[in-house]
Design a binder for these strands. Structure first.
Lengths: 111, 111
DNA sequence: TTCAGTAGTCATAATATTTTGACTAATTGC
DNA sequence: GCAATTAGTCAAAATATTATGACTACTGAA
């Protein structure tokens, strides 16, 4: 995400901004972080289906988009916290708008 | 999109809803359609970098998500119109929230 | 009947994203 | 020193998404 991938449509700012939030795990992680700082291990427990690598990828992408900030906490059990940046906070209304969809589509189940 | 792809995270409704709107061309096409009915050829002109196939894929996915409706218009030049469905209209606030981001990130340019 | 306009389909290739599974590294308590 | 805790990295494989280029199908006008 440092440079544009071929996927990105340079003509559409909305596509660019949406892309910052999408991916298999990024929306969930964003939601968790919007309720306060989250740790790596905590996310692992909250998303038992996601692997370490998957979570690392999502966190790195959110960092590169300047949505999350990584902070090493030098305390009792040394750990890392991820918090929303100023930009990250600005994305909250987008998620609010998603939550407020009241005409929810019926979701297909896997066979 | 008839059944869930492996990509989809069944635990996260937000991921599911965001996925309906994302992809290289879907956000643009959604925007156009939110200003009134659009035609296939019109989209081709508006998105000169997108191929027919790309546009077809985007339209089909938006149809399958029940965001757009395809209507064959039996008139002078026979053509097809795509309009927002009732569900589609509900997605407009999400795009509004994206437009209202005022702390816009600096966009990297391709080398 | 042939042609332009409209709206596509199809098979294949190229890219991007996600998963898998083994391995690493710093700190703290014993 | 040694193990547990926390937080990762790395290379490779599997999937998903997007692009390419040739081809199709219907309608109405000349």
């Amino acid at each position: 995400m440092t440079t544009e991938s071929e996927h990105t449509n340079l003509a559409c700012p909305k596509e660019y901004l949406l892309k910052m939030l999408t991916g298999k795990w990024k929306p969930c992680i964003f939601s968790y972080a919007s309720n306060g700082p989250v740790r790596f291990g905590q996310i692992m427990k909250l998303l038992p289906e996601a692997t370490k690598q998957a979570i690392t990828n999502a966190l790195r992408e959110l960092e590169e988009s300047n949505i999350l900030e990584r902070k090493v906490i030098r305390e009792k059990p040394l750990h890392v916290e991820y918090t929303l940046t100023e930009l990250g906070v600005e994305f909250i209304p987008i998620f609010k708008a998603i939550e407020e969809l009241h005409l929810l589509p019926v979701r297909q189940q896997k066979q």
